[in-house]
Simulated scan of single mutants.
Amino acid sequence: MSETLPSPIKVDCRGIDVFYDDKQAIFDISMPIEDRAVTAFIGPSGCGKSTFLRCMNRMNDTIEGAKVTGEIIMDGADINDPHVDPVLLRSQVGMVFQKPNPFPKSIYDNVAYGARIHGLANRKNELDEIVETSLRRASLWEEVKDRLHTPGTGLSGGQQQRLCIARAISIQPEVILMDEPCSALDPIATARIEELIDELRENYCIVIVTHSMQQAARVSQKTAFFHLGKLIEMGETEMIFTNPDNQMTQDYITGRFG
């Protein structure tokens, strides 16, 4: 059997520190994140997983007193460069949050919103195509195609989260960040989202923060373990879960702390 070649690096984080006023939340984290793969961030609550995730689309910029130092190289450019427009960056880096947050609009308008504001479609038929393609990619089209003009908030929790994923991919991002996307969902909806993540990684670089080690083991190819704002260890998911290098990782995986 031929070996699978490693994916090219999509996001290269170098020496990232994050401060909230005088308090340091992230300490000198460097990691390469591969394209067309899922990288999972695991670790105890409050260890910096979500803070680090938000560095990749400069969401920390929106928090008063937050300061990020270090380089995050994406497609050859440092996204922390003052000349980089964060709005444009966020069109390349989609985000799916912990709690499904559809806009108070129709299902159609939820998905069409990004394409409209970023000028991705000039005519209605182009917009229709983006909406259908995005909903199909999010495994939601068959369930909603007859009620596109009803409110997105009327969907079930799992459907709302898939709608948010459709909204994220409608603007043709290159990276999708997911911050505990299943924590508010039941097991059946969670399984659907996990299947979807596995399908999407064929076309996207996906980074997921999860409190569920089982989920990380199921969906990711690479896993990074965080503790107290530091990256303790990162490697192939199978290795992290079966034969980690660091005793602290081992202790967390086996439930001795966290």
Rank of each mutant, 00 (worst) to 15 (best):
M1I: 14
P6S: 11
D21F: 12
I26C: 03
D28V: 04
I29P: 00
S30N: 02
I33G: 02
R36C: 07
T39A: 07
A40P: 07
G48H: 02
R54T: 03
N57M: 05
R58I: 07
N60M: 09
T62Y: 07
T62I: 13
K67N: 10
K67C: 13
V68L: 06
T69L: 09
T69F: 06
G70R: 12
E71I: 00
I73K: 03
D75Q: 10
A77T: 12
D78C: 13
I79A: 00
I79M: 06
P82M: 07
P82Q: 05
V87Q: 14
S91E: 03
V96N: 02
Q98Y: 07
K99S: 14
P104G: 07
P104C: 05
K105S: 15
I107H: 05
D109P: 07
N110F: 02
Y113H: 09
G114H: 06
G114Y: 10
A115D: 09
R116L: 11
H118E: 05
N122A: 13
E126F: 03
E132Y: 03
S134G: 04
A138C: 02
S139N: 13
L140H: 03
L140D: 01
W141S: 07
E143A: 04
R147D: 03
R147H: 06
R147N: 04
L148Q: 11
T150D: 12
T150C: 04
L155A: 02
G157T: 05
Q159A: 11
L163Y: 12
A168S: 03
I171W: 06
Q172M: 14
E174S: 08
E174F: 02
L177A: 03
D179I: 08
C182E: 00
S183N: 03
A184F: 08
L185A: 04
L185I: 01
D186E: 13
I188L: 09
R192C: 06
R192W: 00
L196I: 08
E199L: 12
L200H: 02
L200R: 04
E202F: 03
C205L: 04
V207M: 09
V209F: 12
Q214E: 14
Q214R: 15
Q214K: 13
Q215P: 11
R218E: 12
S220E: 05
Q221L: 09
K222F: 04
F225C: 02
E233S: 05
M234C: 15
G235Y: 02
I240D: 07
F241K: 10
F241R: 08
T242N: 15
Q247R: 15
M248F: 10
D251S: 13
Y252F: 15
I253A: 01
I253T: 05
T254Y: 10
G255W: 10
F257I: 06
G258S: 00
G258V: 00
G258R: 01
